[in-house]
Design a protein around this nucleic acid. Structure first.
Length: 110
DNA sequence: CCATTGACGGAAC
DNA sequence: TGTTCCGCCAATG
């Protein structure tokens, strides 16, 4: 288990219900913007205590074939709205980890 | 070691 | 976010 992989899990666990993060955003926060694919690969075998359904691609759509439908259902249960194309509004739902010197968190209710 | 693949991203059209 | 192409990187055979 690489350190990068562990960081991904830790970050994903901090994502609040009803909010999502993209693979690229996670990789970027972890310091390796180009490792977006690895984030996805890490989620492929993620433990059950990691809310992998809150990690989606940059289009706001859920990737994956079989597991994708299940994850999307979980997100909808948390209040995330999907349009007909299976995408959600990242401008509204995308979440960023809290920073020590900044507390600008807003409720976000679409 | 080389080729292929992928739960990605982004630039170019 | 339409489609196509390419770069990046780990895992897999």
């Amino acid at each position: 288990m690489s350190a990068f992989n562990d960081k991904v899990y830790k970050l994903v666990k901090r994502i609040p219900a009803g909010r999502v993060m993209t693979y690229g955003a996670i990789a970027r926060i972890l310091g390796d913007p180009r490792k977006a694919r690895e984030v996805g690969w890490a989620m492929h075998g993620c433990p059950v205590d990691v809310p992998a359904h809150r990690v989606i691609n940059r289009f706001g759509s859920v990737s994956g074939d079989t597991y994708g439908a299940e994850r999307r259902t979980l997100l909808e249960a948390e209040g995330v709205r999907f349009d007909r194309a299976g995408r959600c509004d990242l401008a509204v739902y995308e979440w960023s980890p809290p920073t020590p010197s900044r507390r600008t968190e807003r409720p976000v209710r679409a």
